[in-house]
Structures are given as structure tokens and as C-alpha cells.
């Protein structure tokens, strides 16, 4: 059944990471990406790995979930590794056969690249995707991009569209489910036949769905007008996002780690 699908990848929770201000989380995500790309040696990657593990631990997201999130990029990881192992040249030959020579630099580089990908994905997922509700995310994007509205970018309208879309996705999924049931009851068959047959079978679902979406949009517009909606000008909000101690502390930790990574890069390069 369609309604069993959970929306987005948000795992509700109560951890410190869940509670961080969503605006800070967006900034921290960017910061995190900078940290990952700053790491240049195995030792500095170790520092980033410790940070990422700590984030996973604090957020209480299970390791299995993290591993699952890496599955879609498995191919890219293997591809990157192979490319680096065989096409990097260096001084220390590890082994060679036929026309291929593998250098130890290549292996080292491959490991670093794969590590970078793994950390990048798992870290950003833990900070942002898994621990921030889509609503909070939209809200944060609206507030962060607010300065852009001064130069004519419709930031409020964009955010309103996003949040209405989020609000109506479950409703439309439910509706699709109902229409599918009704057409199945009239002998529609979505499961057998070739691609064209299946595509054709979708018409009796898509048309009613479109028509009902337009009707809904129309009614929603009237309801919003009745509730005095007149665009973003002069609009206040129920929730004022306010930075709290934990937001500052986590930000400081991130800055410290960036500093540590840079330090480790220069100091311990020779050791490995």
C-alpha cells in the first residue's frame, strides 16, 4: 500500500542534533563539507571520522540506516577506488603485472577518496536529512534566504510553495491509493503487460488525480484568502527561531575540528 511509505527520510527524535536550530544545521552542513574536503591525510581523516561517529552516536541513528544510505553510491565508490588505484602514478611500486602498475600512492589515494565519500554522505545525512523535518528545513531556507528578497528573489513564495507541497503530499498519496483501488475494482490491471500497456493503465489514475488536485488548489486558495493571506509582506511567525547555547557550542566544536584538521594536515603528514 502506498500509504505505508514514510515520507522523506526524517527520523523523528529528541537528540541534541534534532534540537539544533535548522538554520544552524544548514550552515553546519556546509561547514562539514568544507571540513571533509580540507582533510588531506589519513590522520586528519581520522579526526573527521571521529567527528562523524560522534554525530551518529549523539543522533541515535542506527548504523544500519547509515550503511543503507551509502548503498546508492556504492558504484561511485568502487569506480573512484578503481580509477585511483590504477591511474595514479607515484614512486613506490606496490606490484605490477602485464601493463598495469599499482603504486602505493594510488592505494592510499583510493582509500582517502572513498573515505571522503563515505564521510560526506553519512555526515550530511546525520546533520541534515535524517534529523531535520522537511517543514523545519523549508522554514530555515526561507529565513536564511530572506536577504535575497531585497533584490527581488521571491523567497517567501518559494517557501510557501514548498510547505504547501509538503502538506499535500500525504493527502495526494492517500488519494492515489483510493483511485487505484476504485479502478482496480473496475478491472484495471497495473501489474501485468508490457511497458506501454502499463503506462496506458496509469491514465485512469492520473486524470482523476490531476482534476482533484486542481479542485483542491482552488479550494485551498479560497480558504487561504479567507484566512487573510496576502503574500509575505508584514507577515509574522508563530515560532521565532532563536539560537540557544547548544547551537553555539556545536558551532564552536565544528570550528575547533576544522582547525584540528588543518593542523593535523600539516603536522602529521610525514608520519603516514
Amino acid at each position: 500500500m502506498l500509504k505505508d511509505i514514510t515520507l522523506g527520510q526524517y527520523f523523528p527524535g529528541n537528540s541534541v542534533i534534532h534540537k539544533l536550530d535548522p538554520r544552524i544545521k544548514i550552515i553546519l552542513t556546509i561547514f562539514y563539507i568544507v571540513i571533509v574536503f580540507s582533510a588531506k591525510s589519513l590522520a586528519s581523516f581520522g579526526v573527521v571520522a571521529i567527528l562523524t561517529l560522534a554525530l551518529i552516536f549523539v543522533s541515535k541513528i542506527s548504523f544500519v540506516t547509515i550503511l543503507k544510505s551509502l548503498k546508492p553510491i556504492l558504484f561511485i565508490m568502487i569506480f573512484t577506488a578503481v580509477m585511483n588505484i590504477f591511474w595514479t602514478s607515484g614512486e613506490n611500486v606496490l606490484f605490477s603485472f602485464w601493463k598495469i602498475t599499482v603504486y602505493s600512492e594510488g592505494v592510499r589515494f583510493a582509500i582517502l577518496m572513498v573515505l571522503r565519500l563515505v564521510l560526506l554522505i553519512s555526515g550530511t545525512f546525520v546533520i541534515l536529512t535524517y534529523t531535520t523535518s522537511p517543514v523545519a528545513l523549508t522554514d530555515a531556507i526561507e529565513r536564511l534566504t530572506k536577504p535575497l528578497s531585497k533584490i527581488g528573489v521571491p523567497t517567501h513564495e518559494f517557501a510557501m510553495m514548498m510547505s504547501i507541497a509538503l502538506r499535500f503530499i500525504p493527502t495526494l498519496i492517500e488519494e492515489t491509493d483510493k483511485i487505484m483501488c476504485a479502478q482496480k475494482a473496475r478491472g484495471a490491471d497495473f501489474e501485468t503487460g508490457g511497458l506501454i500497456h502499463r503506462a496506458k493503465a496509469l491514465v485512469p489514475i492520473l486524470i482523476p488525480l490531476f482534476i482533484s488536485s486542481f479542485r483542491r488548489a482552488d479550494e485551498l486558495a479560497a480558504a487561504m484568502e479567507c484566512r487573510l493571506y496576502h503574500g509575505g509582506d508584514g507577515r509574522t511567525r508563530l515560532k521565532v527561531l532563536k539560537l540557544e547555547a547548544r547551537d553555539y557550542i556545536v558551532s564552536l566544536i565544528f570550528i575547533a575540528i576544522l582547525a584540528a584538521v588543518i593542523l593535523v594536515n600539516t603536522q602529521f603528514e610525514a608520519l603516514i
Binding site: 483511485i179 476504485a182 473496475r186 491514465v203 482523476p208
Partner: peptide
């Protein structure tokens, strides 16, 4: 089904 008019296409 309930509100069957929503399946007309």
C-alpha cells in the same frame, strides 16, 4: 467506493 465521482476519467 466512497465519493466514486472522483474516479471518473
Amino acid at each position: 467506493f466512497q465519493y466514486p465521482e472522483y474516479q471518473l476519467f
